[in-house]
């Protein structure tokens, strides 16, 4: 036991210096070359800066809504609802979200609402919605902003992000980018 104590302490100190110090600084240095310089990817628009990977709450009828969030899009305390699939209180919340959506989107049927619009994401910061989730909001946006539904649908289509290499993963729409484009639509 005794003969192992000194090497244990010395080796730990070496590891602290190397892994906490040198490894971290090396990655930090490389990050200075990366887009956003390691401070998070941002986009600037009309003089304002937004984190493009971090979802924002959109609740106004004039914007495409983002997904419900268990933490109200608090990016300094992210988290999911952790509600189980059979929890009655949780299922009541979902039913209420469906009713709210229907009330704000006249003419839409229940069966047109995709589940991502009524369920909370794992991080509470999901920046995306599915393509159906955008399409089902087109009529409301067109009505609120006095555009044709076609114009809004085109905007949705041009903001759709394809699966990786067209092969892997989901199709999705970044809600922030879509809404920024919406504000620019003439």
């Amino acid at each position: 036991m005794k003969k192992h104590i000194i090497p244990a302490i010395r080796l730990t100190v070496v590891c602290i210096v190397f892994f906490c110090g040198i490894y971290t600084l090396a990655i930090w240095t490389i990050a200075q070359l990366a887009p956003g310089k390691g401070e998070g990817l941002t986009i600037s628009d009309s003089g304002k800066t937004y984190h493009v990977n971090v979802g924002q709450a959109f609740t106004s009828d004039r914007y495409f809504w983002s997904r419900p969030s268990a933490v109200d899009y608090n990016a300094a305390g992210s988290g999911g609802s952790n509600k189980g699939p059979s929890n009655p209180e949780y299922l009541a919340t979902i039913a209420a979200r469906i009713d709210t959506f229907l009330a704000h989107n006249p003419g839409i049927e229940r069966a047109q609402i995709p589940s991502d619009l009524v369920t909370a994401s794992g991080s509470g910061l999901d920046p995306h919605i599915s393509v159906q989730a955008a399409e089902v909001q087109v009529a409301r946006i067109a009505n609120e902003r006095n555009f044709t539904e076609d114009a809004i649908s085109q905007l949705v289509a041009s903001n759709t992000e394809k699966p990786l290499f067209g092969l892997f993963g989901t199709e999705r729409i970044n809600v922030l980018k879509l809404n920024l484009a919406l504000d620019k639509l003439r």
């Binding site: 997904r67 999911g80 609802s81 952790n82 509600k83 699939p85 059979s86 949780y90 299922l91 979902i94 039913a95 469906i98 229940r110 069966a111 047109q112 609402i113 995709p114 589940s115 991502d116 009524v118 369920t119 909370a120 994401s121 794992g122 991080s123 999901d126 920046p127 995306h128 919605i129 599915s130 159906q132 993963g169 989901t170 999705r172």
Partner: peptide
């Protein structure tokens, strides 16, 4: 295949069970 309790509410679950999941992963 999604949560059957949500299917019963009549909404689409094309993506599947989405509670606690991110759209970019599915």
């Amino acid at each position: 295949n999604g949560n059957p309790a949500i299917t019963d509410m009549g909404v689409q679950q094309q993506l599947g069970s989405m509670e606690g999941k991110e759209v970019r992963f599915g």
